[in-house]
Design a protein around this nucleic acid. Structure first.
Lengths: 411, 411
DNA sequence: CGGGTCCTTGTGAAAATCAACAAAGCGTCC
DNA sequence: GGACGCTTTGTTGATTTTCACAAGGACCCG
């Protein structure tokens, strides 16, 4: 046996041939995956598999449980960093036998992985070396594959943007186009936008894509990136009370996963309403954007809002602003109070706002302001006088409250 | 002197000639007015006038004080009803000497009046008869005049509608056109709409026109009628706090006057905001209409609102409805409560609304509902449970309150 | 018909609010 | 410097609110 001859020093027609060639050289069952753990090829020998390998082949994808464990135990980290094959000892709880794995790389980018099941005891240095060569041989195949995927992705991308901008209009046309592109549209969907700290780099984009592909919590049908935002079309569960909550949980879990694995996490996230008519994608997108915009202005007030309807009356603010822009009328009470504050450098306005936002509760408000209760009641009396307000009148209070919020929204 | 010869059995070139002819026949100073008490002609003899006549001639209009007194004392009523001349004894407080007056008629319509000052003692029957003949002689002149006025009015009318619909756009063009039409535009204006019970008849229209012409409280620059609405372009006073109130008072006084004199009064009235840019007439008009629309839905809540800004947050309702139409999301708490109400035929919703609208005051609300305080607190606890609401949270309360109002607005 | 749930009303005690007043601090303006 | 107005804090007592618990009525269902 010529040890120096390299059986992988040639091009392979397809990855299945390569897998079989590896098997021929090393006598170990082989699986080849892309960067997102989708099965690309495997050596075709029915015997000698561990349960993990079987489910991978049956599902055409590495089971999520296996992936999580590999991440949890740091295997993925090592695999991503190492240029050379690494050895992973058996993990019975996920049905994984002793293995050897190597990343298929192109410069820094990881294009996929080759996994080897060590059925005949540990592979020698020679074997590891050959595996490395096999990974090199797989590269060109994966590059081609990637280019093809990119191309497909491009058309998904265009499709998604047409939806987001409302350019693909009646529901039926959307569904037709989806069928053409082989996109399986869920019964109900909603758009979710994740806002990141800064513009999303190419590397970040890949990590995001990895997460979207492998997350078991939500099915992300389509995704797109704009500047620092990641836009998702996510499948929504059928209507039911607790499912609503579950959906939110699922998103949070995905985000947490992203953070754990790559140390990245969006600053904020928001979802539009759930629709089943695919002409409404734009609406759901706009709702998500509105939500984010309002959350930016009112972080504390809307901290628990993750979907558009959670905003309560805050979602009316853009429309209220529209009225204000059209009719340009300033609340005279607020005007007077602001003038008073300016001339006497007091802060009646802030006092009023805190009082209103805390349900007109004197004690709570006084505590928050670190002032005596009587001081607060005195101030409230002054506020009523100066602003010409009756603070026991709900209509007046709501008017003031909304006008205050509207001001905060515009500034 | 031939008593049977009728000196008025001829046509007169103009009313001044007629006035002088009457003077020639009866030796009394004469004034001829149109239906709105504008001076049309007077006999030209400098001596023998009472103060009322002098001010009428100087102002080319009967002083408002004189008109009011004539109405108050029932003189106008008699004059409008009587086919024959009537005698009015002197009223010193308004500088009116003994007089005789007759209405100039065309069938039922009163076109104007002839006034005679009885400087030489009471006029005999003969004189009264001649005066009646004189009134007949004036008729054709007044008809011509009326036709001319109608024509002018028609162009005012068109002008006003152009303004109201925003078809005459930049401020300067409006002002140019006004100059052409000889309309004196005030510095600041606003549009007021009076809503009547039923469609405005021709007769009512005349009475309205009479009121607008003679009212001393507000200057009505332009007016128009649509179905059951009277639309006014009213001069607004220069900005100042109390003037704001005065303006409202002025309108009310005019309305009261209308009611007193003709027994008619609008069901409701509303004004748009005050502008100085004449491109904004449409806006002010829309504001007035919105005000009326909201007042119809919320009569008690907005009873004190007579101008658009008085609406407070109610003026946001149309915009909030717009949001709701766009995004179709029902407040889940209200939904649940409504469902509960239906299934247990209770009225938690009404309870909630009353509670919220009365500033979350338990005592007041309980009294209004004629229930025990504890009953109310129990219900509120149930409402909180069933609706999943925190009734000590202002944001949630405002959301509920606005959604309730929005529902009330749409029904 | 009895048992269960839901609603209403009553009682009582702790907590909060309201109103009126006194005392004192802090600017400003003359 | 002192009068003055505005503000803050403290005190007090009447009133209201809140909460927990109990008892009884209405209604439904097995």
């Amino acid at each position: 046996m010529n040890q120096n001859a390299n059986p992988f020093d040639q091009t392979f027609d397809n990855l299945d041939t390569l897998a079989d060639a590896i098997y021929g050289a090393l006598r170990c069952p082989v699986t080849i995956e892309d960067a997102n753990h989708r099965l690309l090829a495997y050596s075709s020998h029915e015997d000698m598999s561990d349960p993990a390998r079987i489910s991978t082949i049956m599902g055409r994808k590495v089971p999520e449980k296996v992936i999580s464990t590999l991440w949890r135990d740091g295997v993925m980290k090592r695999l991503l960093q190492s240029e050379l094959p690494i050895r992973i000892s058996a993990m019975e709880e996920i049905g994984l036998g002793d293995r050897v794995a190597v990343a298929i790389r192109r410069n820094q980018d990881v294009l996929g992985y080759i996994w080897l099941l060590e059925v005949n005891g540990p592979l020698g240095d020679q074997g590891l070396h050959q595996l490395k060569r096999a990974a090199d041989a797989a590269r060109s195949q994966l590059i081609q594959l990637q280019m093809k995927t990119r191309k497909e992705e491009k058309s998904y991308h265009d499709f998604f943007w047409q939806l987001l901008t409302g350019h693909l209009q009646p529901d039926e046309r959307v569904r037709d186009r989806a069928k053409q592109l082989d996109v399986r549209l869920p019964e109900r969907y909603h758009v979710t936008v994740l806002q990141f700290e800064e513009a999303i780099s190419e590397k970040l984009k890949q990590q995001i894509r990895y997460t979207l592909e492998t997350t078991p919590f939500v099915r992300i049908v389509l995704h797109a990136v704009t500047d620092a935002q990641l836009v998702l079309l996510a499948a929504a569960p059928s209507p039911s009370v607790d499912d609503e909550e579950e959906q939110k949980e699922a998103l949070f879990r995905m985000i947490r996963q992203m953070k754990q694995r790559f140390g990245i996490s969006p600053v904020e996230s928001g979802s539009g309403m759930i629709y089943s008519d695919y002409a409404m994608v734009e609406r759901s997108y706009q709702e998500a954007l509105t939500l984010l915009q309002i959350k930016r202005r009112f972080p504390e007030e809307t901290s628990s809002a993750s979907a558009y309807p959670d905003l309560g009356y805050y979602r009316y603010l853009p429309h209220i602003l529209q009225e204000k822009q059209l009719h340009r009328f300033e609340n005279p009470a607020l005007q007077k109070l602001r003038k008073y504050d300016r001339e006497h450098n007091s802060d009646l306005l802030q006092t009023l706002e805190l009082f209103l936002s805390h349900d007109s509760n004197v004690k709570v408000t006084a505590d928050l302001l670190h002032i005596h209760i009587n001081t607060l009641t005195y101030r409230l009396k002054r506020i009523a006088e100066i602003g010409g307000i009756d603070l026991n009148n709900m209509d007046q209070k709501v008017t003031l409250y909304l006008d205050l919020k509207a001001e905060k929204m515009t500034e």
